[in-house]
Every structure is written in structure tokens, then in C-alpha cells.
């Protein structure tokens, strides 16, 4: 019962595994850029060989970073049966292309659907591991600064990257605050006999209706807090769209350039094989 109200428990944003590995010590912007390059590369791999190679390389990266692999994959656990069902669906009902390996009335496993299933499973694990390695070895502040620095060239397209980084920083700062507000709202509803706990899980209409008295006040509380923050920021002299200095400066070391070069070469290799 009590755990129904403990929203903060689910919030894993900003979790950081301290360590001294080479992955920890790389410049955050280099890590982010590398992660983006690898994710985009993996998203476009279709054949078996490049997918399996990428998977093995990513396992190597996880080992190098010192993140326990079970911990990295822990986000997968609640959804494991769902993923399993989905993969079966994909295996049996995808369009029939290539040699049919097995069929029973309307169910077919073809070479195409087998490849699609295997590659999408590998891709899912690749992505989860990559994202876990990045977020678990990088502090939240470094993540937002890295986003700002990686997107810097976009400033020439008049995209306000500094403000975007500020948005991310404020948003991440407010998530635990709003989680606490949400807990308060849920308890208030429950004490009046409402709330989510009494509602049958698959009763979609009831589930939806139970959410309205939680979500609408949450929005209004959030917007009111935003007003306060606007006043606070402006009274301290914040002016948007201006260049500003930072408390911490980053300098790229040789290892950062080497890491980036390795990532680019490996990604190009994966696309070419």
C-alpha cells in the first residue's frame, strides 16, 4: 500500500556510478557525441553480421566502463514478458519475404521475419546498454553541459542551444519536486476515497478518469511554480540569448580525440560490412 505513493523510488534520473574507468574520464561531450553516432549507426544496421559485431563491441564497452551488466539492463526487467510477446508477434506475423522456414496455417516464419526479430532484439539491448553506460558514468550537470556543447554548431542555424541546455537543467531539477507534489495529490485523493489504487488495472475508462484529478492540479502547480521562477530569475538579472561564462571549463585531451576517432572508424566499418 505505502509503496503506491512512493514515486521518488522510480526516479532513476541522475543516477551516477562513481568510477575511475576510461569511460568515466572521457570528456562528457565526447561521450555524448559518440553515443549519438553509435545509436544512429546501430539504428540503420539490418544484416546479421554487423548487428552481432556491434553487440559484441558494445558488450566490450560495458565491460570497459565497469557498469555491472545486470544493472545496465535493469530497465528491461518489468517489460521482459511484453518484449517476449512482441518478438513472437514480429516473428510470426511479419510480411513473408525470402525462404519460408516454418509455417502452420496462417503462421509463417520466413528468413526475413527471423532476421527482423533477431536484429530488433539485439538493437534494443544495444540501445539500453549504450544509454545506461552514458548516463551511469556521467553526472547530470555534465550531461546538460555536454548537450549544450555538442549542439553548439546548431547556433549558426539560429537554434538557441544555450537556452535548451538551461531548459534541460531546470526540467531535471524539477522532476523530484513534482514527484513530491504528485505524492501529495495522490494521498489527498486517496484520503477522500479516490485515486489510482482502487481502480482495476485493465479498466481503461476508470484508469483514465482516475488520472484526471491528479494530472490537472499537477499542471497548474507546475505553471504556478514556473511563474515564481521567472520572477526569481529576472530579479537576479537573467537575460536570455546572451553569452555567459561557466564555473567549470572543459578541455579536450588526447584520449578524447582518440576515442572519437575510434568510434567514427568503427561506425563506418559497421555500415560497410
Amino acid at each position: 500500500m505505502a509503496e503506491d505513493f512512493e514515486l521518488l523510488r522510480y526516479i532513476t534520473i541522475g543516477q551516477y556510478l562513481p568510477g575511475e574507468s576510461i569511460v568515466h574520464r572521457l570528456d562528457p561531450a565526447v561521450k555524448l557525441l559518440s553515443a549519438i553516432i553509435v545509436i544512429l549507426t546501430v539504428a540503420f544496421l539490418n544484416a546479421y553480421l554487423p548487428n552481432i559485431t556491434a553487440f559484441v563491441l558494445i558488450l566490450g564497452l560495458v565491460a570497459l566502463s565497469g557498469v555491472p551488466i545486470g544493472y545496465g539492463l535493469s530497465g528491461l526487467r518489468p517489460a521482459i514478458w511484453f518484449i517476449f510477446a512482441l518478438l513472437i508477434l514480429e516473428l510470426l506475423f511479419s510480411p513473408v519475404k525470402g525462404v519460408v522456414l516454418w509455417s502452420y496455417s496462417f503462421l509463417h516464419i520466413s528468413q526475413y521475419s527471423l532476421r527482423l526479430t533477431v536484429t530488433s532484439l539485439l538493437r534494443l539491448i544495444d540501445f539500453i546498454l549504450l544509454i545506461s553506460v552514458f548516463t551511469l558514468t556521467t553526472r547530470t550537470n555534465d550531461v546538460t553541459r555536454a548537450m549544450e556543447r555538442v549542439s553548439k554548431p546548431l547556433q549558426y542555424l539560429k537554434i538557441p542551444t544555450r537556452e535548451l541546455a538551461l531548459i534541460m537543467t531546470i526540467a531535471l531539477r524539477f522532476v523530484p519536486t513534482f514527484a513530491m507534489e504528485m505524492e501529495r495529490l495522490m494521498k489527498a485523493q486517496a484520503s477522500r476515497g479516490g485515486g489510482l489504487t482502487k481502480v482495476a488495472k485493465w479498466n481503461i475508462v476508470a484508469q483514465a478518469r482516475a488520472r484526471l484529478p491528479l494530472v490537472i492540479p499537477l499542471f497548474l502547480i507546475a505553471l504556478r511554480r514556473a511563474e515564481d521562477l521567472v520572477v526569481a530569475m529576472e530579479s537576479r538579472g537573467y537575460v536570455p540569448n546572451q553569452k555567459r561564462t561557466m564555473y567549470r571549463e572543459y578541455h579536450l585531451a588526447v584520449r578524447d580525440w582518440v576515442a572519437l576517432a575510434v568510434v567514427v572508424v568503427v561506425s563506418a566499418g559497421l555500415i560497410l560490412i
Binding site: 531548459i167 534541460m168 526540467a171 531535471l172
Partner: peptide
């Protein structure tokens, strides 16, 4: 400033 902050709080709700 207002747009930045409102975007941020709505993003926080979205994440939450």
C-alpha cells in the same frame, strides 16, 4: 525567460 521556464516545467512533468 518565461518561455524557457514554462518549457522546462512542462518537460519535467512529461519526464515525471
Amino acid at each position: 525567460t518565461r518561455k524557457i521556464v514554462i518549457t522546462a516545467v512542462l518537460a519535467a512533468i512529461s519526464i515525471l
